[in-house]
C-alpha cells in the first residue's frame, strides 16, 4: 500500500516505536497466559482439580 509521503513517514515512525516497546508487554502477556493455562489445566490441588475436571478431560490435559 502506498500513501502520501508525509503520512508514510509518520506511520513508519509510529511502527518502529511500537515494535521497540512491544516485546516486553508481549513477553509479560505470554507468561501471564501460560500461568492461567497452568492453573486451569495442571495444578493438582483437589478443589481446583474437581472444579476443572470435565474441562481438563475435554481439552486433553492429563487429569488424574
Amino acid at each position: 500500500m502506498r500513501r502520501q509521503g508525509g503520512n508514510d513517514m509518520t506511520t513508519k515512525t509510529l511502527k518502529v516505536s511500537a515494535t521497540g516497546s512491544a516485546i516486553l508487554p508481549a513477553l509479560f502477556a505470554v507468561i501471564l497466559g501460560l500461568g492461567i493455562v497452568t492453573l486451569a489445566g495442571h495444578v493438582q490441588a483437589s478443589a481446583l482439580h474437581d472444579a476443572a475436571h470435565d474441562v481438563r478431560h475435554a481439552t486433553g490435559f492429563p487429569c488424574h
Partner: peptide, 27 residues
Amino acid sequence: LTVVFAMLTYTGYAVVMVALMSVAEGM
C-alpha cells in the same frame, strides 16, 4: 464450573496467542 473453567482456559490460550500476534504484527 465447566463453563467458568472453559472460559478461563481459553482466555489463557488467548492471552498467549494475542501476545504473539502483536509480535508478528510488529514484524
